[in-house]
């Protein structure tokens, strides 16, 4: 009786295994596509409150002055002067954990932020106030304000056939404007899906998968080296906002078709095709055919 049951289980073993593998693989891949959505960026007004500036100065003197010098005038090392970099630069480098940096000769790369939210606000306030304190240098770019995303994909202007490239005048931006600007100005370095790449001399082009809307906008205005600067006359605030929204969209794009390996391009697809497509089939023919 037991033997018969066992046998019956064997009957179903083959087909069940086929189903089971498919279900497991499928559900894993389904789940991989359903992670949490990134937070929307909020506009950050830099504090001009003197207590914040003072607290920022204290933090600066402790953590930054050894490289960037007294009152951001530049230090003995290759670290740049900070007098007129503006709050955008301070906020970008601090919220992405690029600063503080052990060795100024290294490329600043993304890390977990060293300072907490309040400390960063205070440091932002201090850096923004530096031109006033030192009395030399123009004020740097403020933290950019990102326009909201339009509710309809074609934008409130309803430009329809005329294309997306002219500003519609209203305050909101569309993903389409963002895609277009991203393709022209960003994809050549950061890759079409925002997965990053390499520059010459070993300089890393970071992935944009962790960048939030404000950080993207800040990066465009600041030009964190080796990235170039994109000023407001090159890329308007509207286009900047659209690009920032599109970068956030790329974190979880409405991109059907299964596990996303687009960030790695056709070579990765070839790897999957050879290993998981042809490889499995090779395994199958090893079983079907004779060996010897």
């Amino acid at each position: 009786m037991i033997a018969a049951l066992l046998r019956r289980r064997r009957v179903l073993a083959g087909p069940l295994a086929v189903v089971a593998v498919a279900v497991v693989v499928g559900s894993v891949l389904f789940m991989a596509g359903g992670a949490a959505h990134g937070q929307t960026g909020q506009s950050l007004l830099v504090s001009t409150n003197s207590s914040d500036i003072l607290a920022g100065q204290t933090l600066y003197d402790t953590h930054c002055e050894s490289c960037h010098g007294y009152e951001g005038k530049g230090g003995v090392t290759s670290a740049p002067a900070l007098v007129s970099v503006g709050a955008a630069a301070a906020d970008f480098y601090l919220t992405t954990g690029r600063m503080p940096l052990n060795n100024p000769a290294n490329q600043a790369l993304r890390h977990h932020p060293y300072f907490d939210r309040t400390q960063i606000r205070q440091l932002d306030a201090y850096i923004a106030a530096l031109p006033g304190i030192t009395g030399d240098g123009p004020p740097g770019p403020a933290i950019p304000t990102v326009a909201p995303l339009c509710s309809s994909p074609s934008g409130s202007g309803g430009s329809g056939g005329s294309g997306n490239r002219s500003g519609s005048g209203s305050g909101c931006v569309t993903l389409s404007e963002g895609e277009s600007g991203f393709a022209l100005n960003c994809a050549e370095c950061h890759q079409a899906a925002g997965s990053g790449g390499m520059l010459s001399k070993g300089n890393v082009i970071p992935t944009l998968r962790n960048a939030n809307i404000t950080q993207v906008a800040e990066a465009m205005r600041v030009g964190p080296k080796p990235m170039p600067v994109f000023g407001p006359k090159e890329i308007s605030n509207k286009e900047m906002s659209a690009i920032a929204h599109y970068v956030e969209y790329l974190h979880q794009p409405a991109s059907p078709g299964g596990l996303r390996i687009s960030g790695f391009g056709p070579i990765a697809e070839g790897f999957v095709g050879i290993v998981f497509g042809f490889g499995i089939l090779l395994f199958a023919v090893r079983m079907i055919g004779t060996r010897g």
């Binding site: 693989v25 891949l29 059907p256 299964g258 056709p266 697809e269």
Partner: peptide, 9 residues
Amino acid sequence: LAGLVQINP
């Protein structure tokens, strides 16, 4: 593969 892994989006 066609169902589970995206190719050339």
